[in-house]
């Protein structure tokens, strides 16, 4: 009998893991955004001393992981597992950073939902009694993502107003079975939802139904309402996607109010910075959640935050072959 499972797809942790350390590293563009003060490190340039964007991304992830470990006050060799993922083919940033960290490693892929996915799995492992300390990380890099998913970086392409700007950055957290600080209390794992959007520039619209589906699932499973949260965050839906999300959850009877925001809209100033519909990428929900929002959870300004991290499970190949874009959304709830 699965005693911790509530409803159809939600788990309630009986001994909710503590988030004892976080680390966030972001690029220069994010450093000019409205949340700049909430990040641990803002890099002066995209290259950060490396010759390729892929190497720079790896460096970001390693740096974020090291900050999280240092802040947690736990020795590196006490950490049992490292769960990480990123956007690049064969999740090389995660795998190569694990080579450096030398901690037993689970590589995960959930596109931009990776941070919530990793945190859910980590919490399950801890609450299941398999481990005391787990490190979770994810990263994305504007240039590396652009090269893989879109065009050469210097190409003369005018970005569409609905396309999103990949956040350069990395976020990491250390979960622990004991300690103090904010705890990860609930998690809902999303289904893959595809409502037939084909345009790979319009990922917000592709992911919004998945986010709404998981959100409604959480509400039904736990019997909660959206106003029970100080903040409801979606990962990286951008302005069109978050409009659609609001509409979809309203139709389902769980309308979100002023306590709703989207990480992709918070990280940049969409009016003055040229970022199209907002930020996206694995790092987008991770750095917003673990940076400024986590700070507010720690000092008690926020008590209960729900994050729906959203991912678009496409590849350049699948969109070129004319396939629609499957989306996914995973929920984690963090309480101080």
């Amino acid at each position: 009998m699965a005693s911790k499972k509530i409803g159809k797809a939600t788990v309630k942790f009986t001994n909710p893991p503590f988030i004892i350390g976080t680390g966030t590293v972001v690029g220069p563009m994010e450093g000019k955004g409205p949340l700049a003060k909430g990040f641990d490190v803002v890099l002066p340039d995209l290259a950060c001393g490396e010759k390729t964007p892929e190497k720079s991304e790896r460096k970001l992830l390693e740096q974020a992981a090291n900050i999280a470990i240092e802040r947690s006050g736990v020795e590196k060799n006490m950490i049992d597992y490292y769960i990480a993922g990123d956007l690049l083919n064969q999740i090389i940033s995660a795998g190569f950073s694990a080579r450096q960290l030398a901690i037993p490693f689970f590589g995960v892929y959930g596109a931009c939902s990776t941070c919530a996915m990793g945190a859910t799995l980590g919490s399950m492992i801890i609450d299941g009694g398999f481990s005391d300390y787990i490190l979770i990380g994810c990263s994305s890099h504007y240039q590396a993502a652009e090269r893989q998913f879109r065009h050469p970086i210097e190409l003369n392409v005018k970005h569409k107003a609905i396309s999103q700007y990949t956040v350069t950055g990395a976020g990491a957290l250390v979960l622990s079975s004991s300690g103090k600080g904010p705890r990860l209390t609930w998690a809902t794992t999303g289904k893959v939802i595809d409502l037939g959007i084909k345009d790979p520039c319009n990922l917000g619209a592709a992911m919004a139904p998945a986010a709404a589906d998981t959100f409604v699932r959480y509400m039904i499973d736990t019997g909660s309402t959206p106003d029970m949260f100080d903040l409801v965050l979606t990962g990286d839906l951008g302005n069109l996607g978050s409009e659609l999300f609001k509409e979809l959850v309203k139709d389902a009877g769980y309308a979100v109010g002023n306590n709703y925001n989207d990480c992709g809209l918070m990280i940049f100033d969409t009016k003055t910075q040229q970022v199209g519909a907002g930020g996206s990428g694995c790092a987008c929900p991770a750095v917003v959640m673990l940076g400024p929002i986590f700070g507010k959870l720690e000092d008690g300004t926020l008590k209960k935050v729900l994050l729906v991290a959203t991912g678009a499970l496409l590849s350049p190949l699948s969109s070129q072959q004319g396939e629609t874009i499957p989306g996914i959304g995973h929920i984690i709830v963090i309480e101080s």
């Binding site: 037939g196 069109l240 659609l244």
Partner: peptide, 9 residues
């Protein structure tokens, strides 16, 4: 859904 997207876009 496509109609909704077209409306909002």
């Amino acid at each position: 859904y496509k109609q909704l997207v077209a409306e909002k876009q």
